[in-house]
Design a protein around this nucleic acid. Structure first.
Length: 471
RNA sequence: CGGGCUGUGGCGCAGCUUGGUUAGCGCGCUUGACUGGGGGUCAAGAGGUCGGGAGUUCAAAUCUCCCCAGCCCGACCA
């Protein structure tokens, strides 16, 4: 049956690696500010790699990074009715500063559409200023009722993109492009996590958006996790803030069409829960801070020098390598530690094999070992990393397939969603059906076209709803 | 805010039902030795307002009451 989630259950229920893995981060104990998170170095190293890869992909779409204020005047939030209604329950509001009560309270940003639009309104004047494509890496605060390590913390790290376009068509296309090229691409190619790309229902969409698109992944326990979203904001915020441009013909004033989109450090939690096994993390090579751990068994018969040379050679080949020559720590302990940390490949260098001119190569995902001649290590390691990346993805996809059930009725969907995803015609769900599912702890994760494509309208015929329990 | 449950060295827990010497165990930590091919062995150590308060009692981690905090399930959500 479903294995427990290392991020949400009690430590006592867990295998021995729990404490080691959870050491990636911990929920802070700071009194009334519950649910904030402290990320420790190894956990942060994983996040840093995510940041750099996602950042690169974002820039490839023509978006530039910028930064906006942490504090937002409360009145800004209220300018977009749906937006303020959606977010007000979870706002942190500052009422006092500088030793006195503020005339107008400011909120700590829960997301930045409003503060950014207050600048967009000034920056955008002409069609020549469009499209305006910005992104910011920042922390945001949402006073969640139930914090969970990485998945839902009061304060979290993320990237939020905000764009302005001249036409609705262009804005929608851009929101979908980010969803596919940046998010789905990153999750599948780098994190080796297959995702369903689809559209959120009216009930599930972002407060203030015309449409929300999502990437939904299945965790090792069959539950769904929203890994990223992209919103088509229409003109909701531009109308609220007066973000207008003069058109090319006749210089008419038009409101801009906008998008916003984000992924957060939640992805670290998703990575842990999608690939982790009872021995600890299993990191895809593309994201692993350490791709190859060269472990020196014993420093005898020149093994130490050989290990160091090997590590240097692997680095030369462009790999992220760590030489573990701590021979004062027992070999077993070190081997286990690299397993817990999820290093995809481990090279064990000891006098025993060196006598025959080879080393032992261990794959983290399958735990399989092979002996490799010294001269062939670089080639073989590269092969293993390629294989681990591909196999982790294939494994996750097979798992998802095995836990996805096609059904035709709500009752069957509720039943099937206990173990994973259930898919049924959206026409068989509808508003009432969605409420019924929710009452059973199940949500509609996304709507897709029959071919898996992302629908641009909820009225499209034949839409398929994927429903599941979710984090 | 509803429904369950738990607070005991840094972490994880036992002890409580049936009150009774100096409150234990595992992990971690310190020192030393032996070791070293999968969280190794041995020895010596450090570390505690038993969540807080009040009460019952000769005696409270244990019983009673009040308070506080946290966890899990739900509503909210990247």
């Amino acid at each position: 049956m479903a294995k427990p989630s290392p991020l949400t259950s009690r430590a006592a229920d867990f295998p021995r690696w729990y404490q080691d893995v959870i050491a990636l981060a911990e929920l802070a104990e700071n009194g009334p500010v519950r649910g904030t998170m402290v990320i420790r170095p190894y956990g942060y190293a994983i996040w840093e790699r995510m940041q750099s890869d996602v950042d690169q992909r974002i820039k490839a779409t023509g978006v530039a990074n910028a930064y906006f204020p942490l504090f937002i005047p409360e009145s800004y939030l209220s300018k977009e009715a749906e937006h303020v209604e959606g977010f007000s329950p979870e706002l942190a509001v500052v009422t006092h500063a500088g030793g006195k009560e503020l005339e107008e309270p400011v909120v700590v940003r829960p997301t930045s559409e409003t503060i950014i639009n207050s600048y967009f309104a000034k920056w955008v004047q002409s069609y020549r200023d469009l499209p305006l494509l910005l992104n910011q890496w920042a922390n945001v605060v949402r006073w969640e009722l139930r914090p969970r390590l990485f998945l839902r913390t009061t304060e979290f790290l993320w990237q939020e993109g905000h764009t302005c376009h001249a036409t609705q068509t262009e804005a929608q296309a851009f929101a979908l492009r980010i969803l596919d090229e940046v998010y789905r691409g990153f999750m599948e190619e780098v994190l080796a996590i297959p995702v369903l790309s689809g559209r959120k229902t009216e009930r599930e969409k972002f407060a203030g958006a015309d449409a929300s698109y999502t990437c939904e992944a299945m965790m090792g326990d069959g539950k769904a996790l929203q890994m990223g979203t992209s919103h088509d904001l229409g003109q909701n915020f531009s109308k609220a803030f007066g973000t207008m441009y003069a058109t090319a013909e006749e210089g008419r004033q038009e409101y801009v069409w906008q998008t916003s989109w984000g992924v957060s450090a939640r992805m670290v939690g998703g990575l842990i829960m999608a690939h982790g096994d009872d021995a600890g993390l299993r990191l895809p090579p593309a994201i692993a801070p350490v791709q190859v751990a060269v472990v020196l068994v014993r420093d005898e018969a020149g093994a130490g020098d050989t290990a160091a040379a090997l590590a240097a050679e692997l680095r030369q080949a462009g790999l992220r390598v760590e030489l573990d020559a701590r021979t004062d720590v027992s070999f077993g302990r070190r081997a286990v530690q690299w397993e817990i940390r999820g290093a995809p490949c481990r090279v064990e260098v000891g006098p025993r094999e060196l006598a025959d001119g080879h080393v032992v190569l261990v794959r983290r995902d399958t735990a399989s070992k092979s002996t490799v001649a010294l001269s062939g290590v670089v080639h073989e390691v590269a092969e293993v990393l390629r294989a681990v990346q591909a196999d982790l993805y294939a494994e996750a996809e097979a798992f998802r397939r095995a836990r996805t059930t096609e059904v035709s009725t709500l009752d069957d969907a509720i039943d099937a969603a206990q173990a994973g995803f259930a898919q049924l015609p959206w026409a068989a769900v509808g508003l009432d059906g969605e409420a019924q599912l929710n009452a059973s702890g199940i949500t509609v994760r996304c709507l897709q076209r029959p071919d898996g494509g992302v629908p641009t309208s909820l009225e499209e015929p034949g839409l398929v709803a994927s429903v599941a329990r979710a984090y």
